[in-house]
Structure formats: structure tokens, C-alpha cells
Amino acid sequence: MKFQLLYSLTICVLAFVASSDAAISPEVYWKIKLPNTHMPKVIRDFLSQAG
């Protein structure tokens, strides 16, 4: 019983984390993860075409 509860809680937490990261734009995500690095033009162009 404890294992099922722990497993369910873990799945819920992972789902929440995945959904919260998807809610921000790629540019903001880049600035959060790599604050002192400029996003290369190639990546920026690809993201604007993909979106």
C-alpha cells in the first residue's frame, strides 16, 4: 500500500514539473537555464519557424 501511494505521488509530481516547464517560452527557458549565454541565431530562427 505504501509503495502504491509513493508511486502515485511521484507520477503526480513529475507530471506537474513537466507541465510547468512547458508553459514558458523557449527564450525564457534558455535564460533560466543558461543565464550568461546568448541564444545562437540558428536556434532562435529554428524556434521561430517551429512555433
Rank of each mutant, 00 (worst) to 15 (best):
Q4E: 06
D21N: 15
K41T: 09
V42D: 00
V17L: 09
R44C: 06
S19Y: 06
P40I: 07
P26C: 10
P40R: 04
F3L: 13
C12G: 05
S19M: 08
Q4F: 02
A15Y: 01
W30G: 04
K33M: 07
A15P: 03
P35D: 01
L47A: 04
I24S: 09
M39L: 15
F46S: 11
L47V: 04
L6F: 07
A23C: 11
A22S: 14
D45R: 09
I32S: 04
V28H: 14
S25K: 13
N36M: 00
V28L: 14
P40N: 07
S48R: 10
L14G: 03
K31P: 04
K31D: 10
C12I: 07
P35C: 02
K41N: 05
Y29K: 13
A18K: 03
A15G: 08
A50D: 13
P40T: 12
F46W: 09
Y29N: 14
S8P: 03
K41W: 01
L34M: 07
A50L: 12
L6V: 11
L6Q: 11
V13N: 00
A18F: 06
Y29R: 15
V17P: 00
D45W: 12
K33G: 01
L5P: 02
A15V: 11
H38N: 10
S19E: 09
D21C: 07
